[in-house]
Design a protein around this nucleic acid. Structure first.
Length: 292
DNA sequence: AAATGATGCAACCGCGTTCAC
DNA sequence: CGTGAACGCGGTTGCATCATT
């Protein structure tokens, strides 16, 4: 038994919107708004559409000041920063980009930006929705991004145009002097730390959320098979402590390099060459950063 | 020129959350 | 406080278009 459908599926039109439908919806919305009820709206204006469909059409396409395509480097940087920090929470990411919708940002990430930053190896991940130990795609991609950022030979480090810069929305500036960057682990940590948004990020509604929960989330997923949580939770650091005490558990990450290598004939660069040592170094970097 | 594959994007679906009663 | 309806979000799908063979 599933939930009751939100509308009569047999009597609603699906698929692309016609210009006439757009005009009807836009005219009504500009005049009256939803009147607090999307479900009732299509009937009011004589549209054979589901209320959810109307809402989506309005929010993603008809709403004033919507921008489509043509993402700037600045926007790329913001998306990259936030994706690494908070994962696939597209509505929050889109809220940082005036005129962008969550759907647009999501599509842009999945079709272009991900490839631009990670290269071909993402294809391997795409072929498996769920990884061993319950690690999600999102977490893996974020991990890959971190590895890319730590790898001095990666496209990201070698291409200054991809480096995040000062942004507009009150978020912290990053890579203050990217030009004098050299491959030195300690310095790298600082840059990575900066890149993570210096611990906080402006959230919709003026909230501030710590963003360096990445490790805790991964540990969470690895050890307990949980999905990434949204807000930092009590107990995350305790879990991290437990993780640190379980030296043997880190060895279980061997599958990340070996297992993936054996499984994926597609990816040969990032994952194939990533050693357990790198993971340990990365996590140690974070431990230093956390001072735990 | 036709066939095939890759890509981009709009729209749909299902589920968790919120809110009114 | 419990329940059900509506909302909002993220994942996924389907189709049109472009690129390659």
């Amino acid at each position: 038994m599933g939930r009751a459908p939100c509308c009569d599926k047999a009597n609603v039109k699906k698929g692309p919107w016609s210009p006439e439908e757009d005009v009807k919806l836009k005219t009504y919305m500009e005049k009256y708004g939803t009147r607090g009820n999307w479900i009732a709206l299509p009937q009011k204006i004589g549209l054979k559409r589901c209320g959810k469909s109307c809402r989506l059409r309005w929010l993603n396409y008809l709403r004033p000041n919507i921008k489509h395509g043509g993402f700037s480097e600045e926007e790329d940087n913001i998306i990259c920063n936030l994706y690494m920090s908070i994962g696939s929470r597209w509505s929050i990411i889109a809220a940082q980009l005036p005129g962008r919708t969550d759907n647009d940002v999501k599509n842009y990430w999945n079709t272009k930006l991900k490839k631009k930053l990670l290269g071909r190896q993402v294809k391997g991940a795409d072929e498996h929705n769920q990884f061993p130990h319950g690690l999600t795609n999102s977490a893996l991609e974020r991990l890959q991004l971190h590895i890319q950022l730590q790898n001095p030979f990666s496209n990201f480090y070698n291409n200054p145009t991809l480096w995040p810069k000062v942004n507009q929305n009150g978020m912290q500036s990053v890579l203050k002097n990217p030009g004098d960057f050299h491959y030195q682990p300690a310095q790298q940590d600082n840059h990575l730390d900066n890149l993570m948004g210096s611990k906080t990020v402006a959230m919709a509604g003026g909230m501030v959320e710590p963003v360096s929960n990445f490790k805790a989330e991964l540990v969470d997923e690895l050890l307990e098979g949980k999905a990434c949580s949204h807000a930092p939770r009590e107990g995350q650091m305790a879990q991290l402590d437990s993780f640190n005490e379980m030296n043997g558990s880190k060895d279980s990450m061997v599958w990340w390099s070996n297992g993936f290598d054996a499984k994926s004939s597609v990816s040969s660069n990032c994952w194939g060459s990533t050693s357990v040592l790198q993971f340990n170094e990365m996590f140690q970097d974070y431990e230093l950063g956390y001072n735990v």
